[in-house]
Amino acid sequence: MRKTTLVSVVAALPLLAALPAQAASYKIDPAHTFATFEIDHFGASVNRGRFDRKSGTVEFDKLKKTGKVTLEFDARSINSGTPDFDKHLMGADFFNVEKHPSIRFVSDRFVYEGDTLKEVTGKLTLLGKTHPITFKANQFTCYPNPIAKTEACGGDFVAEIDRTQWGMDWGVKMGMPKKVRIIAQIEAFRQ
């Protein structure tokens, strides 16, 4: 019979640390996760807004450089900073929150260049229609979060869409652009 000693256990620790990590589950931190949008307003200014209520999960395998992000935003929580504009955005001309109260993004691929995350591709469901979208990564990292006492992963991402693909056509004939810039700031805690 072989006895396990404290010395043999300690000696094996570096080998255990070298074993491949498995995919981990993360829950988004609503305090550090936002989706904002920007659209030109006749070349004079830029209209901006965000969604204040959101939820989601992330599955991430650092070694395989794979993962899946699922984010859901409550379209009724739109916040442009101007209540009358928010009402218009929530109406049938834009987000039509009565019929489509949520906006959903589900990723299908993480794209790396070496060890750097370059983009996340997936599908955006808006106004009952689903189309592909690519978010470019401005930055991304994982770190030990001292407040949550767990690992946090997060980044800053940007995408540009043609809103008419989802049927959001209001104002195009008046000269408002089709292109909308989406900025996604995401941070999630390992569970």
Rank of each mutant, 00 (worst) to 15 (best):
Ala137Trp: 10
Gly128Ser: 05
Glu119Gln: 12
Ala148Asn: 07
Glu113Lys: 14
Thr134Asn: 03
Thr116Ala: 15
Gly114Leu: 13
His131Leu: 12
Tyr143Gln: 00
Ala148Leu: 08
Pro146Phe: 10
Lys149Trp: 09
Lys129Glu: 14
Ala137Leu: 11
Val111Ala: 12
Leu126Gly: 02
Ser107Glu: 04
Lys129Val: 15
Ser107Val: 12
Tyr112Glu: 06
Leu117Thr: 08
Lys149Leu: 13
Lys129Ala: 15
Gly122Val: 09
Leu124Tyr: 04
Ala148Ile: 08
Phe135Gly: 01
Gly128Pro: 03
Val120Gly: 01
Lys123Cys: 00
Asp115Ala: 14
Lys149Tyr: 10
Ile147Trp: 04
Asn138Ala: 15
Lys136Met: 14
Val120Arg: 01
Glu119Ile: 15
Asn138Tyr: 11
Val106Tyr: 05
Leu124Met: 10
Tyr112Gln: 07
Gly128Lys: 01
Asn138Lys: 12
Glu119His: 11
Lys123Met: 03
Pro146Tyr: 05
Leu127Trp: 07
Gly114Pro: 12
Gly114Gln: 10
Val111Cys: 09
Glu119Trp: 10
Val120Asn: 00
Lys129Ile: 15
Pro146Asn: 07
Thr134Phe: 07
Val111Phe: 11
Asn138Trp: 10
Ile133Met: 04
Tyr143Cys: 01
Tyr143Thr: 13
Thr116Cys: 13
Arg109Ser: 15
Lys118Cys: 13
Thr141Pro: 00
Ser107Pro: 05
Phe140Val: 11
Ser107Met: 11
His131Ala: 10
Pro132Tyr: 07
Ala137His: 04
Glu119Thr: 12
Ile147Gly: 00
Lys129Arg: 13
Arg109Gly: 14
Leu117Glu: 02
Lys123Trp: 02
Tyr112His: 09
Asp115Ile: 15
Phe110Glu: 01
Lys136Tyr: 11
Asn138Pro: 05
Leu117Lys: 02
Thr150Val: 13
Thr121Gln: 10
Tyr112Asp: 06
Asn138His: 12
Ala137Lys: 04
Phe140Trp: 10
Thr141Ile: 14
Gly128Leu: 08
Ile133Thr: 04
Glu119Arg: 13
Leu117His: 03
Val106Asn: 04
Thr116Phe: 14
Thr150Leu: 06
Ile133Asn: 01
Thr130Cys: 07
Asp115Trp: 10
Tyr143Asp: 00
Leu126Trp: 09
Gly114Thr: 11
Gly128Glu: 01
Ala148Tyr: 08
Thr134Ser: 09
Leu124Val: 06
Phe140Gln: 00
Gly128Met: 06
Glu113Phe: 15
Pro144Ile: 12
Phe110Pro: 02
Thr134Ile: 11
Pro132Lys: 05
Gln139Lys: 13
Asn138Phe: 14
Asp108Gly: 11
Asn145Gly: 04
Leu127Glu: 02
Gly122Cys: 05
Lys129Leu: 15
Gly122Trp: 08
Phe110Thr: 03
Pro132Trp: 05
Tyr143Ile: 12
Thr121Lys: 09
Thr141His: 00
Leu117Val: 11
Tyr112Thr: 09
Leu124Lys: 03
Pro144Glu: 04
Ser107Lys: 07
Thr141Asn: 00
Gly114Trp: 11
Gln139Trp: 12
Lys118Met: 13
Cys142Tyr: 01
Thr141Gly: 03
Thr116His: 10
Leu124Ala: 06
Cys142Met: 02
Glu119Phe: 14
Leu126Asp: 00
Thr134Asp: 01
Lys123Tyr: 06
Asp108Tyr: 09
Tyr143Met: 02
Thr125Asp: 03
Tyr143Arg: 01
Thr116Ile: 15
Asn145Gln: 02
Lys149Ile: 15
Lys149Asp: 12
Lys129Tyr: 13
Leu117Arg: 02
